[in-house]
Design a protein around this nucleic acid. Structure first.
Lengths: 222, 222
DNA sequence: TGGAGACTCAAACGTATGTTTCATACGCTT
DNA sequence: AAGCGTATGAAACATACGTTTGAGTCTCCA
């Protein structure tokens, strides 16, 4: 860590790790600086204060996330293919071992316990992905493809996202409940395969004209 | 708040709210005491310290949770009916407005950011419900019902739980993304209906002999 | 009535943390 | 070489927090 060069970037990286591990409040500027090999005063000199540093870290995570998603957003193909791409991309980001994997953990943290930067994060990062998924789901529910505001579309999109996020949000539970289950080397292909099949069948099950809010649930195919 | 009576219980209730709102670290004993109308020293007098108080709060949440789940655990009926009961019960607990709704938020918090009390919580509260769900899912995948350790059983159970928890874990996102979506008075019936139909169809889609971990993902029915 | 134990209260203590200060070293321009 | 703006370093400052202390108050029983 040669001195005098880019301590700002070193601090940003260290801050990302620490914020992701401990959350904004529990992260201490002392640990961040120690991990970055920088002096305590560096944070206030370069960023102003801890909150501003957090904002910059989130900005950086957002940029990386955006460029990571570009290929998925632009992809063409059948709705099934695009859904597979969506699921695989999401899981890859969630479980990306090594390198800067902290920005996903950071965003998970924001979802569960929002800070002031939350609204901007939703509008810039989450909403585009959600709209994309709604489009895919609408195509799968057709023809004719229902309106993206249709309840079946919104709820099915939530079901897909919920399945993906669950394995990340509740990873500590899974780790305790089924030791080793998350350490399998082929975890992501297996999860992708399952969630894709489960979701395609689930969406197909909503295709019949049956109104969703029928009240008397559980009719179906028993 | 008549003095001299049951300040212990008042503190437990206030602590539950504050811990659920802010998390263990961000919750301050001063706010808990203020909300309970008790003196600062009362916590150390009655419970020892903040960590012990947190443990007691978690114990209480666990008791309430257990007695709340009893009717669902003991229910008989077709697998479809039991799955509906499971989903509805889970959503009801997650979105139970009013009264002590904080114990669910507290457990969500433990899932995302475990404390020392986490392992006990998983073993006593989460594991039984998960095993119950595995049994239901196995029945739905049969006949013949596969082993509860089967990947399809475990992953499908995770899919059901993930869908339910998603609406709670990511409620802040949903609130920003689709304002008012979570305020509908018939929210729980609608969510129950959707998750049940989606999951029944999803599980049915896994029923064919096709091995789940085929490596070449996304074969199936495109 | 009196005293002992249970409980409450206001105040203070020690520590961890975000922030600030001021002195020092480096790179660049004149 | 002198001077100036930028960056770093060690130490101190102010605050918020968990915890402790010691006095005061109430209840109950002998």
């Amino acid at each position: 860590m040669e001195p005098h060069v880019e301590t700002e970037q070193r601090i940003l990286n260290a801050a990302g790790e620490v914020f992701a591990e401990r959350g904004f409040r529990d992260a201490t500027v002392r640990e961040i600086c120690a991990r970055a090999g920088a002096n305590l005063a560096a944070i206030n000199y370069h960023f102003g204060d801890k909150a501003a540093l957090y904002g910059r870290v989130l900005d950086q995570a957002r940029c990386w996330s955006d460029e990571h998603d570009r290929p998925i957003l632009d992809a063409a193909g059948t709705p099934q293919d695009r859904l597979e791409l969506f699921i695989r991309g999401m899981l890859n980001k969630l479980f990306d071992k090594g390198r800067p994997s902290w920005h996903t953990r950071l965003m998970s943290r924001e979802m569960v316990e929002p800070t002031a930067a939350f609204d901007g994060l939703v509008d810039c990062t989450i909403r585009p992905k959600f709209d994309l998924l709604r489009g895919i789901v609408a195509d799968l529910l057709g023809p004719p493809a229902p309106d993206p505001e249709d309840d079946r579309v919104i709820l099915s999109a939530a079901s897909v996202i919920g399945q993906c996020l669950h394995h990340h949000h509740c990873r500590h539970v899974t780790h305790r409940l089924l030791p080793g289950a998350l350490d399998a080397p082929d975890l992501i292909p297996k999860l992708t395969d399952h969630i894709l099949r489960f979701s395609l069948a689930g969406i197909a099950g909503l295709r019949q004209p049956g109104t969703t809010g029928a009240g008397r649930a559980a009719g179906g195919d028993r």
